[in-house]
């Protein structure tokens, strides 16, 4: 059985041993206020959501109640790795003063324990590839999918625009730390840049219907009105190549795909005519074709 050494629970635990009714008398006003307003984030002697009371008292020792009051009313951020504390300006000054008294008293003689809290922390295991995972990605909508292919290639597929975005192999390419938008550290090998991929799109928003995993590889399913598209992303036979296998239903005329791209990789098609970054396909060719992205 796991015990959670939260000061709140410890205090209740201790109080439980007392005869009933004695709980309130054993706690100071400051302790009660701390348990109401602070304990969710601040533990006595270890880091939690916010710093411990032991750490806090280093900045706001006995006598520094004015600075403590100012901080509580309008907190900033001392540790960039922690979340910012919400302002507690609704608390009357005497309550905050009581809390400060309690912080000073309860931390006397205590040192901060090492480690953030009792969780072991989770390390991403080695994933069996291909691995398809939803993620925030740069230069794509926040509803994107990362495809980690066997070998060292990765691809980004955007479920909002319903399109393949780019391919990269360098880990440094994607920076997802912090709360900001993910960024490219280095340009990807291949990235499609045309505002609209399909000639029939005509401003119509595609409908994303999900994906199937076939031997672990994703086959995306989406539609533009009556046109149904399946797009499977797999490794090519040659190392360093990515294939996109398309099946279109409901195409009534020839179509053009605008495959304008940037990056060092090359794209080729097993059907139609590819010129100036545009792939022209007849109605019959559009039913089933494959694009091949290969390294130089």
């Amino acid at each position: 059985m796991t015990m959670v050494w939260n000061p709140r629970t410890l205090l209740v635990g201790a109080a439980l041993l007392l005869p009933g009714g004695a709980i309130a008398e054993t706690k100071s006003a400051g302790q009660l206020a701390y348990e109401t307003h602070c304990v969710a984030c601040h533990m006595v002697d270890s880091r939690w959501v916010g710093p411990s009371l032991v750490k806090m008292v280093e900045t706001y020792p006995d006598g520094e109640v004015e600075a403590f009051l100012a901080w509580v009313k309008n907190p900033g951020k001392k540790d960039p790795k922690m979340i910012q504390m919400p302002a507690m300006s609704h608390l009357p000054e005497d309550v905050v003063t009581d809390i400060h008294n309690y912080v000073v008293q309860v931390t006397e003689g205590k040192v901060e324990k090492r480690g953030r809290h009792h969780f072991k922390g989770f390390k991403e295991p080695e994933r069996k590839l291909p691995y398809v995972v939803r993620s925030f990605m740069p230069h794509s909508s926040p509803a994107s999918i990362l495809i980690k292919l066997p070998g060292d290639l990765n691809a980004c597929w955007d479920t909002e625009a319903c399109r393949f975005r780019y391919v990269w192999s360098d880990e440094k390419t994607i920076n997802t730390s912090g709360r900001g938008e993910p960024k490219f550290g280095a340009p990807p090998q291949y990235r499609e840049t045309a505002p609209s991929l399909w000639s029939f799109a005509d401003g119509v928003k595609p409908q994303f219907k999900g994906y199937r995993l076939i031997e672990g590889y994703p086959e995306f399913d989406y539609a533009y009105g009556a046109i149904q598209i399946r797009e499977k992303v797999v490794n090519g036979a040659e190392p360093g190549t990515v294939l996109r296998q398309f099946n279109l239903l409901g195409v009534t005329d020839g179509i053009v795909m605008d495959l304008t791209d940037e990056g060092v990789a090359m794209i080729s098609a097993d059907a139609g005519r590819l010129a100036d970054g545009k792939l022209t396909l007849t109605r019959e060719e559009a039913a089933s074709f494959t694009l091949n992205i290969s390294q130089p």
């Binding site: 509803a143 479920t159 909002e160 994303f208 219907k209 999900g210 994906y211 199937r212 995993l213 076939i214």
Partner: peptide
């Protein structure tokens, strides 16, 4: 094992 991840609502 699930092989179809169907989008119900996005």
């Amino acid at each position: 094992v699930a092989d179809h991840y169907e989008t119900v609502f996005d």
